[in-house]
Design a protein around this nucleic acid. Structure first.
Lengths: 234, 234
DNA sequence: CGATGGTTTGAATACCATCAAAAAGGGTGG
DNA sequence: CCACCCTTTTTGATGGTATTCAAACCATCG
């Protein structure tokens, strides 16, 4: 689960969590000495049903969080990037799965240790609470997106969410890199890969975006994309 | 926001939160002396954008939690019933709205007071954290439901979730009372009221349910409903 | 180079939303 | 108790959008 100190932007689609920027505290100190773990692309960080032993902090790379239905259909619940936390909130066993979408470096934090620290530190436990609240807000934004919206609206909202994330991180808000596959995007937005592809092609032919590579794209007309995301155009 | 001590059943659709059954603690004591508030059907408990001043515990009645898009489309995020908490997790201002769906009695708890209690009580603050985690799990189950599933699957999953709730509360799992309107159900499942109605009619004509009144129905063939919810039939 | 995994494009279908209207409650007042 | 109005629910007909099935295209890697 994404762990973020930043409140959700509440702009239709969940903005991926913000990098860890809390003031130095017990968690911060613990992180510095935490054991490192490397996972390759497609490797699981944890799976639904696993016992919850650790929480992870992403040093580099990206992770997808998802649930799978018995027939194989998958709903991606979010993407976590460098600086995000993954695995918070679960009790006992994992309710969701986490899988790297590219080679990723993680710092591993014992849940027992985290809980012990939280028990002795009301400030930390309140922060955990706040963090989970932010994640919940994100989840709800995603529901708003996948609930009633057309494929175009979902895609536009998704691109703009990634754009906002870039801006927050001081990067170019118009250049977007998609480390995940079309399948991942589709499973996140609740549409098929063909629809993802068709929608992006449509945006491109309308001059809203440029797509030199399938994983790298440039937002040309963000104002129009905003209108599409808001349901004012299609 | 729904506040529950029960983990999500992770069975496709969020089970509405479980009644408050925690051991007596500071929160429990505070509840007993908390001021009461009555709201009529359709009256707001709070609206998106309101300052977050209180958390509410439902003594009787039912409440819907939702967000509205600028064009008026609405996504219901969940329903809270007697025994549930509403309004937890928000910082500063409300990110969602809460509206009674029938006459409802609430106990009002000051957020400031709650936070003060939590700061001095690691056990309570951990419980709040756990509760939010359960709510997050519910939200994710809803995503799974509204993400890729057909109207039949969503409806079957919804009915079964209400059935499980009844069973947990010691009530008849086959008799379901829907206090909310078709519009509410539709906005929750992400389909139109017509589709809600048609789907129920289809279930009825197939002998899966009986519907003596539009708000009261009887689950006849739960095994088949389970299969539909799992996507094995339609 | 061929093989593989991922992406794009095409054509036909299925499903749900939309628009429209009828039917079924639920109150209120005569 | 019935007539009336209002809201909610149900039913019907139609069209649009996304899915499905299928094949071509493209990049990467052994």
């Amino acid at each position: 689960m994404i762990f973020s100190y930043a409140p959700s932007t509440s702009s239709g689609l969940p903005s991926p969590a913000m990098p860890f920027q809390g003031r130095p505290g017990p968690l911060h100190e613990y992180l510095a000495e935490a054991t490192q773990r490397r996972v390759e692309a497609k490797e699981f960080v944890f799976m639904e049903g696993d016992p919850t032993t650790n929480v992870y902090w992403i040093e580099s790379g990206a992770v997808s969080l998802f649930k799978v239905l018995s027939d194989g259909r998958r709903q991606i619940l979010g993407f976590a990037y460098a600086g995000d936390f993954v695995g918070l909130g679960a009790q006992g066993e994992r309710l969701i799965s986490a899988q790297a979408i590219k080679p990723t470096r993680l710092r591993s934090i014992s849940v027992a240790k985290l809980h012990k620290m939280a028990a002795g530190d009301p400030d930390l436990s309140f922060k955990l609470y706040q963090t989970l609240a932010a994640e919940l807000a994100e989840a709800r934004d995603l529901m708003l997106t996948t609930g009633h919206r057309s494929a175009c609206e979902r895609m536009a909202a998704f691109l703009l969410a990634l754009s906002r994330r870039n801006r927050r991180n001081g990067k170019d808000a118009t250049i977007i890199y998609l480390p995940m596959t079309r399948t991942d995007v589709g499973d996140f937005l609740g549409v098929t890969i063909e629809t993802v592809s068709r929608t992006l092609t449509k945006f491109k032919s309308r001059g809203l975006i440029d797509m030199p590579q399938s994983a790298r794209l440039h937002l040309v007309d963000m104002i129009e994309l905003e209108r599409i995301a808001a349901g004012e155009e299609h």
